[in-house]
């Protein structure tokens, strides 16, 4: 069932039970929840783009300052919360902040849901205490690398985050620790790659994603992601040129920190990190004029 319908049903139930609407549970307090459906734009995860979209415009981010808490939806102070925050809230309310803070590490309290994808035996969503070693997520909860293969690399925080290697498996799942290891915990999406993975191809797909999702507002993101996608296509498909990895790095310099919002910046992080760790694979693609991993693709199960 599409999520909108699930949510509408839940809201109806809440309304029927008197949890929302007029005079909530006889308290004299009115509050209601309106479900406003988006229409396909990753950029609307950026809080100001979300507000712009709610106002009916193209989901383009706005200048900050003013921040939404000062001037947000319809120019009014607005709190923007992620689903993750809202989902955690009832448990904290029910069990108390001390209960929540007792879990996790001193710098990362409580729990977090990790969405694990890629080459593990049991992909899916796992809620773990902050600080749990990455090794435990992948090997215990995820059942280890599929097909008895070994781990090549993983991306710990979602589509933009820098790649990490097997040597980082004992890093704890919390913001500080992952940052110290050279990546970010970001959105909590853990993508696992086995030894047969073409890292160039993974980066290519991610860059094409950012190219597709760039709103087009600012020059570096609009033009840069398009150019990077072209470069990744040609490297992956055996037409890369020797200077391409360095060109990609230089484009990272011109996009990261220069874009209007973090989408453009973030589009460069994974590519740059894989060039750092797997430069030889780029060279191999270019020299051999083909993807060295092409033969190892999965067939449809």
């Amino acid at each position: 069932m599409p999520q909108t319908e699930l949510l509408e049903t839940a809201l109806e139930e809440a309304r029927a039970a008197g949890y929302i609407g007029r005079n909530v549970l006889g308290s004299g307090f009115d509050v209601d929840v309106l479900l406003h459906r988006g229409a396909g734009a990753y950029i609307c995860g950026e809080e100001t783009a979300l507000l712009t979209s709610l106002e009916g415009y193209r989901g383009e981010p706005r200048l900050k300052p003013p921040f939404p808490a000062v001037k947000g939806l319809y120019g009014k102070p607005t709190v923007v919360n992620n689903v993750e925050t809202l989902a955690t809230l009832p448990h904290i309310v029910r069990n108390g902040p001390d209960w929540f803070a007792a879990m996790g590490t001193p710098t990362g309290k409580g729990t977090r849901v990790w969405c694990m994808s890629g080459h593990v035996n049991r992909p899916g969503n796992y809620e773990l205490e902050m600080g749990t070693p990455i090794r435990e997520l992948i090997y215990e909860h995820g059942g280890g690398i599929w097909k008895g293969r070994s781990l090549k690399a993983f991306q710990p925080g979602g589509a933009s985050m820098m790649v990490l290697l097997p040597e980082h498996l004992d890093v704890g799942l919390d913001f500080d620790a992952i940052a110290k290891a050279g990546s970010m915990a970001g959105a909590g999406a853990m993508m696992v790659m086995d030894e047969t993975t073409c890292i160039v191809d993974v980066a290519r797909r991610l860059v094409k994603f950012f190219e597709h999702e760039s709103c087009g507002k600012c020059t570096p993101c609009r033009e840069g992601t398009y150019w990077m996608a072209n470069l990744f296509d040609r490297i992956e498909f055996g037409e890369g040129k020797p200077g391409d990895p360095d060109l990609l790095l230089d484009m990272g310099y011109n996009i990261d920190g220069r874009s209007f919002c973090p989408l453009g910046d973030a589009s460069t992080w994974f590519p740059r990190s894989v060039i750092k760790y797997f430069r030889d694979e780029f060279e191999q693609h270019i020299v051999e004029k083909a993807c060295p991993f092409r033969g190892e693709r999965e067939a449809v199960a």
Binding site: Y226, W227, N254
Partner: peptide, 10 residues
């Protein structure tokens, strides 16, 4: 240099 290269790329 970079942003002009972007603007002129296409």
């Amino acid at each position: 240099n970079g942003v002009l290269e972007f603007l002129l790329a296409n």
